[in-house]
Amino acid sequence: MAHVDEVTPERFVPSWVLQTTFESTEEALKALQVYKKKDAEKVIVRFKAVGNAPIMKDNFFKITASNRFQAVIQFLRKQLGYKATEPLHTYINLAFSPAPDDLVSNLFKSFATDNHLIVNYSTTAAWG
């Protein structure tokens, strides 16, 4: 009986069940604010035409990393003078189409080659 109090409840209760305090909630909310802060950093995106798509003279661009991929698509359309109704398919590394709400920073971290995010564009579906 004398040793019973050595067995603390933490041993049996999963840690996430433990009560949290008001202070720890405040701390967690502050942490979320830190992670929510937008990355002002810019990354280099390199556009490469595929098939019959028009070639761009300057194909290196610095784009804010916190943008969504949709912003890259819109930027590319503007550069090419393409209307929203004209077909334009975009791919990373000649392999897949990212979701339009993927963050450029995330794509860059996972798929950049030689510090460039390579975006292929085509007027017809290629690796769709």
């Binding site: 992670y35 993927d102 971290k109 996972s110």
Partner: peptide
């Protein structure tokens, strides 16, 4: 309420 984090 965001963001999404993707790392290798």
């Amino acid at each position: 309420d965001g963001p999404v984090i993707q790392e290798l």
